[in-house]
Nucleic acid binder design. Structure first.
Length: 572
RNA sequence: CGGGGUGUAGCGCAGUCUGGUAGCGCAUCGGUUUUGGGAACCGAGGGCCGGAGGUUCGAAUCCUCUCACCCCGACCA
């Protein structure tokens, strides 16, 4: 592609509306332009990358035996009413009417449509298992779109739906998709992690999210350094401490702690580490107020606690509410002699001689022990795991925390949709049977943004070769210098003929401008061609990543570039 | 949905308090000189100041309403 004839409007300055690096760089490199809140134009450069991702996804899905279809973006309300989701889905479902006043929505997902399709077309168990996928524009009317493409309202998604006769077959279909997803993210050249997700009320044994690792990721994910356990922080469980159930060695004592309220202050006061203390939190739940106990150095996981208390009303009580309810301030709250229902985190079970609030303002208790000083409460998993916690799946491992961007989600749906929409096939016995469904999503456009979050430097994007809009950029310093221009043109053709994707910067711009744009655009390999180099008989080949450069003789440049690109593409 | 903010040239902004000829930098177009890491000079084009209504001799500026976008929070397969 010739830059002189391409719409590639780069920006020197960061647009004010962009908060995160991928959004800034996508705007600055001329990949996208905003049309409205959460909706974007894709310009030539951005579209090339989007298509790259799309093709990688398509290739792997086909390889995994899924069949590509293309379903309508606009869907009639009737289908959604059949499954009840017309009323359940809420404000994110963009609804509208046609000329005749009939209700429609712009599809945020396609379970209803695909189920309708297969209930009309699949009759026999012999047609199963089947897996249909599409790459489609979706619309979710996000309450607060942000971060550019990362969390837009309109976005490109690959969604796949599998249909199986029984659970075992579904398990297999799921596994095939799981492996295909790994292959997809590997093929994109991204560093990623598959993590366990909560399969929740829908049941089924499994759901996994795929995260691209990036410091700016919205999700925290925990993973074991020894086995393959990995989970979203919301769901991650730490292993229980070893049974160091040491007997009490100290008497319980009430100590005046006039200035010590926070865990830090209390630990400092008693000259102990925070893990020797116990913090008490009051929460509201459907069953009324409840006291949660955590080790001093641990954080409450509100989702776990909320699930445990089955509460729609779950929330932390405000300090003034605590005072009103118990008569003491939050800094001196404690479980001993409390009349409230108490649930303690598992990590407290084998603690002895710990320190906690005395339920009297300005006092704490030391040497507190279960059974002797207060009854053992209910124990449960209430906390966020921490870096270094032991793994709950294996003996050897410890957990590490990373940040990630969710780019894929696989889910066993079971018969939720097939049942409510009456989809059956005849089984071997000639009886009607309701197939089980799985669904598998990948945020295609989000991958583009996530890839940038993971691969950039101060000057711009540093594309992994598999997603790069161009493998090679040729910087022609001055198109008016005939020998250089002719050489660049010849090289351009040679590289194109070899199957590489090449950007030729043939603009009448100064070199500095071209370098800055090349940095922004982020092609992995570039070559600088000018009159001086032609005279010397060698031109400069540079690598975007790391910025290394070498002089290559004119008659070898073509081969060198082709080989280097092929090396990168083959992963070496 | 609650709170905050911003709408003035393609982009980034000043001007608004205190009403009186609509500006600056970058970008764009033409010219000259330049040309190996975001050039210099000369000249030019480009705006119903988000929209509607009002006050006023006169509104980017004051008042009312409205729309859009951004940020924080709540929400989120």
């Amino acid at each position: 592609m010739r830059l002189s004839k391409t719409l590639l409007p780069t920006l020197k300055e960061d647009p004010v509306e962009a908060q995160i690096v991928s959004h800034k760089l996508m705007l600055r490199s001329g990949m996208i332009r905003q049309l409205g809140a959460g909706i974007y134009n894709w310009l030539p450069l951005g579209l090339r990358v989007l298509r790259k991702v799309e093709n990688i996804v398509r290739q792997q899905m086909d390889k995994a035996g899924a069949q590509e279809v293309f379903m309508p973006a606009v869907q009639p309300a009737e289908l959604w009413q059949e499954t009840g989701r017309w009323d359940q889905y809420g404000v994110e479902l963009l609804r509208f009417q046609d000329r005749g006043g009939r209700d429609f929505c712009f599809g945020p997902t396609h379970e209803e449509v695909v189920t309708d399709l297969v209930r009309n077309e699949l009759r026999s168990y012999k047609q199963l298992p089947a897996n249909f996928y599409q790459i489609q524009t979706k619309f979710r009317d996000e309450v607060r779109p942000r971060f550019g493409i990362m969390r837009g309202r309109e976005f490109l998604m690959k969604d796949a739906y599998s249909f199986d006769l029984d659970q075992q077959s579904l398990d297999n279909s799921y596994e095939v998709m799981f492996q295909a997803y790994k292959e997809i993210f590997k093929s994109c050249g991204l560093s990623f992690r598959a993590v366990e997700a909560d399969s929740g009320a829908i049941g089924g044994s499994a759901s996994h999210e795929f995260h691209v690792l990036a410091e700016s990721g919205e999700d925290a994910i925990a993973s074991c350094d020894s086995c393959d356990y990995a989970a979203n922080l919301e769901k991650a469980v730490a292993g229980l401490q070893d049974g160091t159930d040491t007997p009490p060695t100290a008497e319980m004592q009430k100590v005046a702690t006039p200035e010590a309220k926070t865990i830090d202050e209390v630990s400092e006061f008693f000259a102990v580490t925070p893990d020797k203390t116990c913090k008490s939190l009051l929460v509201e739940s459907d069953e009324g107020p409840c006291m949660l106990l955590l080790r001093g150095d641990h954080e409450l996981n509100e989702i776990k606690a909320g699930n445990l208390l089955a509460g729609n009303n779950f929330r932390l009580l405000e300090p003034h509410e605590v005072k009103k309810l118990t008569g003491v301030g939050v800094g001196s709250l404690g479980p001993v002699a409390s009349k409230l229902k108490i649930i303690a985190d598992n990590s407290l079970a084998n603690m002895s001689d710990f320190i906690c609030g005395a339920n009297e303002d300005g006092y704490h208790l030391t040497g507190v022990n279960w059974e002797r000083d207060l009854p053992s409460p209910q124990f449960a998993d209430l906390r966020n795991v921490q870096e270094g916690d032991s793994c709950s799946r294996c003996d050897a491992g410890s957990l590490r925390l990373d940040r990630g961007i969710e780019v894929g989600h696989v889910f066993k749906l079971g018969d939720k949709y097939t049942k409510s929409m009456n989809m059956t096939v005849l089984n071997q016995d000639g009886r009607e049977q309701t197939p089980l469904m799985g669904c598998y999503g990948i945020g295609v456009s989000r991958i583009v943004a996530a890839a940038i979050e993971q691969n950039h430097d101060d000057n711009g994007i540093v594309w992994p070769i598999f997603l790069a809009p161009f493998h090679v950029e040729i910087l022609l310093i001055n198109p008016k210098e005939a020998p250089a221009a002719e050489f660049a043109e010849k090289l351009y053709q040679q590289l194109l003929d070899s199957g590489l994707e090449v950007l030729l910067d043939d603009r009448h711009e100064r070199l500095g401008v071209k370098f800055k744009d090349a940095d922004l655009i982020g092609a992995p390999i570039r070559v600088v061609i000018g009159g001086r180099g032609i005279k010397e008989g060698a031109v400069e080949v540079q690598s975007r990543k790391g910025g290394s450069s070498q002089k290559v003789a004119l008659n070898e440049v073509g081969e060198t570039l082709i080989n280097r690109a092929k090396d990168l593409l083959s992963g070496s």
